[in-house]
């Protein structure tokens, strides 16, 4: 079950490379097509999931709480899909949450800037100078989006195992490089890395179940043992811990739940001013 995650500064370019790589290696392609199924499973509109991936939280737009829930559903489903098959994944922000998995090759594909500039200018009927401004704005938005959602800068090449710039290498050569790199022994699945992926998937599943009632939870899993962190007022601590244990304890794969409830200093301060 080898995994390749492809990210790009241009969604269509990333998708093209990912699909070609999947075909070349005979891996399954995992992309935004899966959002329809995720939306069905959680009775949420697919458009909301897409919005959560493409827009930042804003006063008039999607609320941060809703956006986090949408991203948690995507994260849960993507991790689940990566467990049992050879896959090339693109367009689901997996490079921001499939972390520390040694058999996962993460690739950043940088589109040819000149080509993107020309395409953008002709599609929108604007000058190259205006198109450049739009592209810069988009890149800066992606940086802010990834920092806000996952505390990682997705435009930073050091976050990836491999960075390919298409200004000098064509798409087919990029596919060849990626296909060859995944055959390196270091990207072979091993007991440790498979266990880490299972732990991530379990944590994501539990977080997804908890988020509706407890929007600020952090969940970590280790072989069926869960550590859940949350914040609450002092008087609510026990009740909160019990409620979390009741929900998490029912999820398949969970053997033991430990809840750490920290003091919610903001609510505490707000109450003391009343």
């Amino acid at each position: 079950m080898s995994i390749i995650i492809i990210s790009s500064d241009s969604y269509p370019v990333g998708r093209e490379i990912a699909m070609k790589t999947a075909k070349n290696l005979d891996y399954d392609f995992l992309g935004r097509e899966s959002l329809a199924q995720i939306a069905d499973n959680h009775t949420i509109e697919e458009s909301k999931l897409i919005k959560a991936m493409d827009d930042g939280p804003s006063f008039l737009g999607m609320k941060k709480r809703v956006r986090n829930r949408c991203l948690a559903y995507i994260q849960e489903a993507t991790l689940g899909a990566l467990i049992n098959a050879n896959r090339v994944c693109q367009g689901l922000a997996a490079h921001l949450y499939v972390l520390g998995i040694s058999h996962c090759l993460s690739v950043l594909v940088l589109a040819d800037p000149e080509q993107i500039l020309q395409q953008s200018a002709s599609n929108k009927g604007i000058s190259k100078k205006e198109a450049k401004k739009l592209i810069d704005r988009h890149n800066s938005f992606r940086r802010r989006w990834s920092m806000d959602a996952f505390d990682l800068d997705e435009t930073d090449p050091s976050q990836y195992d491999l960075t390919i710039s298409l200004s000098q290498i064509d798409a087919d050569e990029a596919v060849k490089i990626i296909s060859e790199t995944i055959t390196y022994r270091r990207f072979n699945p091993m007991t440790y890395s498979v266990k880490c992926l299972h732990d991530l998937e379990l944590a994501a599943r539990v977080r997804s179940a908890l988020l509706e009632s407890f929007p600020n939870v952090i969940v970590r899993a280790n072989s069926g043992t869960l550590v859940v962190e949350t914040a609450a007022l002092k008087r609510e601590k026990r009740k909160r811990a019990e409620a979390i244990k009741a929900v998490a304890g029912k999820i398949p794969g969970v053997e033991y739940v430990e809840v750490h409830v920290l003091n919610d200093i903001f609510r505490q301060a707000a109450e003391s001013f009343r």
Partner: peptide, 23 residues
């Protein structure tokens, strides 16, 4: 002391598998 970098190094050098303690 399992970590991704160490796991990858071991595999690249020819390890058959890599297991984190406790197991």
């Amino acid at each position: 002391y399992a970590m991704m970098a160490l796991a990858r190094e071991a595999m690249e050098k020819g390890a058959f598998d890599f297991i984190a303690k406790p197991f």
